[in-house]
Simulated assay, not measured.
Amino acid sequence: MKLAFTALTALSLASTAMAQTTVQSCDRTVTFATPPKAAISNDVNLTEMMLALKLQDHMVGYTGISGWKTLDDKMTMGVEALPELSSKYPAKEVLIGADADFFFAGWNYGMRVGGEVTPQTLAPFGIAVYELTESCIHVGPKDAASMDDMYNDLRNLGAIFGVSVRAETLIEGYQSELAAFLDEQSALETAPRVFVYDSGEDVPFTAGQFAMPNALIEAAGGTNIMNDLDKSWATVGWEAVVDRNPEIVVIVNYGEVTADQKIEFMMSNPAFADIDAVRNKRFVVLEYVEATPGPRNIEAVKTLAAAFRAE
C-alpha cells in the first residue's frame, strides 16, 4: 500500500509539474501553476486579445477603456457580460477588491514605471502580471516594434491560459490572411514617407521605432519618418516633421479631438502647406485599437497598404 501511495503521489506531482507554464514577460520570467481564473485586462487592445482567444470565462472584468475611448459594437458585444472596474488606469485596491489573480497590462497601458500598480506591488496579493510586449522598452532594451510583438502576446496568453492550440491557430490565420493580401498588392517603386499624428498642436505626439505603428507602416511597405526616434510614443518638434516631408499622414483616432479635426488643423496651418501629404490631401485614419498591439493590426496593415498604393 505504501508503494502504491508513493507511486500515486509521484504521478500526481508529475502531473502538477507538467501543468506549470513559464513565459517571458519583458525582463521577467513568470510561472503559472494553473490557468488564471479571475483575470483583468487593461485597455481596449489588450482586452481584444483576451476576447480573440475566447478567455471571457477566465475574466472578472476589465479596466481603462471608457475613460479614453468609446467601444464599437463588436467590442461592446464581447465584454457585455463583464464589468468595467475602472474607466482609466486602475488603482491597486480595484484589482485586489475584484479578487483578481491575473492582470494583463503594459507600461503606459495600465501601469507606470514607479507607479502603485506594477508586477512587484501586486505580487504580495497573489496577482500575477503579464506585460504587453510592445511596452517592454520602458523597462529595458528591446528590438524595434514588429508584428511579432502582437503574435508573441497571443502565444504567451495561450500558454498561460492553457489554450496554446487555439492561440497558434489564430496566429497562423492572421499571418496567412495578411500574407495573401500583401501578395495581391502591386509593388511600390519606393517606400512612401509616413508620419503618425496621434495628438497635440503645439508639439505632435507620434510613434517612434518602438511603437506599433512603426511595425504596421513597415509591414504595409512604407517608412515611418520617425523610425530613428529611440522611443515608443513621444513628442517631437513640428520642424522635424516639415523637414522630413511625409507623403502620407496617419491619424490615430480617439479621444475628444476627432480625426477630422486633426486633419483640419494640419490642412489649415500655413506652416504645413509645403508638406507633400498636406498638398495632396493624403491622410489615413486608424482607430486607436488598430494602431496599438492587438488583433486589429491585421486590418490596419491592409488599410495602410491600400492607401500607400492609391493614386
Rank of each mutant, 00 (worst) to 15 (best):
Q24W: 05
I40V: 07
K142A: 11
Y130F: 14
D72F: 03
D143H: 12
Q20M: 12
P293Y: 10
S268V: 06
C136Q: 09
L304N: 04
E264S: 15
D101N: 13
N227G: 05
F272R: 08
V165S: 15
I96G: 06
S268R: 13
Y174Q: 12
N227C: 07
A17H: 09
A144E: 05
V30S: 01
V301W: 00
S232A: 13
A100T: 00
V30N: 02
G237S: 13
T9L: 15
K74T: 15
F5N: 11
V203E: 09
V285W: 08
K302E: 00
E218T: 13
V117N: 00
N152F: 11
A271Q: 13
C26G: 02
P35R: 00
T303W: 00
S164V: 10
D72C: 01
N269F: 04
K69N: 13
F181S: 00
I96A: 07
P293K: 10
Y151G: 06
T121Y: 09
A273E: 14
T121N: 08
Q185C: 07
V252M: 11
E247R: 08
G97E: 06
M226P: 03
G221P: 04
G78M: 02
P90M: 03
R28V: 00
I160W: 00
W233F: 15
T34E: 15
Y197I: 04
G67H: 08
G67K: 10
Y109G: 03
K142E: 06
P293T: 12
P119L: 05
E48H: 07
V257R: 14
A259L: 04
I225C: 01
A128Q: 15
T76N: 12
I251K: 01
N297G: 06
N245I: 09
E184M: 08
A273R: 12
F283I: 04
G140Q: 01
T6M: 13
E84Q: 15
A159D: 12
T133D: 13
A219P: 06
A211C: 02
D183S: 12
L51Q: 12
F283R: 10
V113P: 08
G64V: 02
M266Q: 09
P192D: 01
G294M: 03
I160K: 00
L11M: 11
R28A: 02
L170M: 02
R112K: 15
S41V: 08
A215F: 07
D72K: 05
S86C: 06
S146Y: 10
I225K: 08
A211E: 03
A105E: 02
D143K: 14
K88M: 10
A17L: 13
M147R: 08
Q56T: 14
S232H: 11
R244N: 11
T22W: 01
M59K: 11
P83W: 12
Y288M: 11
T34K: 14
V139R: 04
Y254N: 06
L216T: 05
F308H: 08
D198S: 05
N245F: 04
F5D: 13
S87I: 13
F205Y: 15
S12K: 11
E184T: 13
R193E: 09
S135L: 00
K37M: 09
A33Y: 04
T76L: 14
S199I: 04
I263K: 06
S87E: 13
Y197R: 02
N269T: 12
P124L: 06
G110L: 00
R28S: 10
A240P: 02
T292K: 05
A10F: 12
P36G: 01
M147H: 05
L46N: 08
